[in-house]
Amino acid sequence: MTLSRMKRILLKLSGEVLMGPGQYGIDPETCDRVAQEVKQAKDSGLEICMVVGGGNIFRGLAGAAQGFDRASADYMGMLATVMNALAMQNALEKIGVQTRVQSAIPMASVCEPYIRRRAERHMEKGRVVLFAAGTGLPFFTTDTTAALRAAEMNCDALFKGTSVDGVYDADPKKVPTAERYETLSFDRVLADNLRVMDASAVALCRDNNIPIVVFNIREVGNLVAVLNGEGVSTIVQNQAELTNA
């Protein structure tokens, strides 16, 4: 998969990425570094939209485990993603990248409401669109949001930036001999419960034929390298695409 084959991508970042070396919150230097990589990718001619999780501030499942009502906890997590989206918007606009934040929960004083046609128009004009507040509904993860928005925006691929350089047959942080997959089928991911993304997100990408590219966003310059087919990643796609590769 190379940059020349793609016109539009969705970049999904976990909220933890924005913590940088810290244990909580938003690290401005990390936001600036990620923004520079997004700008490089955009300058190559790509149309880019983004979804950022909220785990660096508040995670709904963790809140529910501590006694919060699950729906209320999920709404709190959605608000955390708005904070992260605004942080990334600030970092991108500081370096001259026009952005728009669209929230699934209307908050007109802060950002635009999510409107699919408007988001498409923004990207056609060269703006980076950040989708915040998840789907606007509890019980859905930001992984599912990313898959949904990638389908709605007719993205050529979903790039998931994590702290590991792909999908392994075991947790590489715990099992030194774990082996990384170069490619995987969606059905294999679901059957083996490989936890690339949650099952609903994987199924949504499978049904809409949107490849998922898992890579390490913490490695400087890795986004552009992976886009150019030079970096290390795992590509998850339909079996027919794997057969024809």
Rank of each mutant, 00 (worst) to 15 (best):
C31T: 14
N228T: 07
G161D: 02
A64Y: 13
T2M: 02
A85P: 13
I105H: 01
V52I: 15
N222E: 15
V226E: 02
V51Q: 07
L130V: 14
K39D: 03
T81Y: 10
S4A: 11
V214S: 00
Y168N: 01
S103L: 02
E93T: 15
M83Q: 14
N209D: 15
N154E: 11
G63A: 06
F159A: 03
Q36T: 07
M6I: 08
G67C: 09
A201G: 11
L11E: 05
N209T: 08
V164Q: 00
F139C: 03
L11G: 05
V164Y: 02
P172M: 01
T141D: 12
G55I: 04
T142D: 08
L79V: 07
L158K: 00
R5I: 04
F215E: 01
F186C: 00
G229E: 09
L79D: 01
G22L: 06
N228D: 13
R117F: 13
A147W: 09
L92C: 06
A170Y: 05
L92G: 06
L137T: 11
A157Q: 00
T243M: 13
D207V: 11
C155Y: 06
P172E: 00
V17K: 02
M1S: 12
D156M: 09
L13Y: 15
R149C: 07
T162Q: 08
A245M: 13
T81K: 06
P28T: 09
D187A: 01
A199P: 02
R5Y: 07
M1L: 13
L158S: 01
N84T: 06
F215K: 02
A178R: 05
A65W: 10
E152C: 10
M88S: 02
V232I: 15
L223F: 09
V110E: 05
A132T: 10
G15H: 11
V129P: 07
R5M: 00
G60N: 12
Y181M: 05
A62F: 05
G231S: 09
I212D: 00
M1I: 09
L190C: 01
K125V: 01
I115D: 03
L130A: 08
L11M: 07
L79I: 06
E47A: 08
E230Y: 10
A199R: 06
R180W: 06
M50P: 12
M153L: 15
N208G: 05
L61Y: 06
K174S: 07
A119T: 11
L11Y: 12
S200N: 13
D165V: 04
A71V: 12
D187F: 00
R8Y: 05
G126W: 10
C111M: 07
Q36E: 15
S72C: 12
S14I: 02
M107P: 03
V164G: 00
A132W: 11
S44E: 13
L184V: 05
G126A: 04
Q23G: 14
E124R: 10
G25T: 11
D169F: 01
M197T: 08
G25I: 08
I26N: 05
A245I: 10
G60H: 06
L61N: 06
E93P: 03
D165A: 01
N84K: 03
P211G: 04
D43F: 07
F140Y: 13
V52M: 08
A104K: 09
P211Y: 09
I105Q: 01
N154R: 14
T234E: 00
G22C: 04
P138L: 09
G166A: 03
D69E: 15
